[in-house]
Amino acid sequence: MSKYKHEVILCIVNSGFSDEVMDAAKEFGAKGGTVIRARGTANAEAEKLFNIAIQPEKEIVMILVESKIKNDILHALYRAVGLNTPGQGIAFTVPVESVVGLTDFSAEAKSNTDSSEA
């Protein structure tokens, strides 16, 4: 288990698939995310070699989650918008050292553990 309590999931998908990313992530407890428009670049030769077309318009979805639900969300993203889907998504996580502004998260997490104990 990582020493970090939160991780930020970065999911790069083709433009227009950010809703699918959020739907998949919300199923496993993500609360919200931020979408950034971006432009992908790919090696033109590699594109020919692997016979794929890279759509340059991308969206990066940034989701801050607790480390314990990170794996579930990554799996969900892989299934919903993985490279072999139209979304052609890549997802990875980066450890986060400290967080502010997520107070409802901790409050909710606490009430969840309370109810499961009861």
Binding site: V8, P95, V96, V99, V100, G101, L102
Partner: peptide, 23 residues
């Protein structure tokens, strides 16, 4: 900086946000 931002997120009207640090 995070403590400062935390305070501003609570007190500034329409200033709600999140902040985090990456190594």
């Amino acid at each position: 900086a995070l403590a400062f931002l935390d305070e501003k997120f609570r007190t500034v009207k329409g200033g709600k946000g999140i902040a985090f640090t990456l190594p």
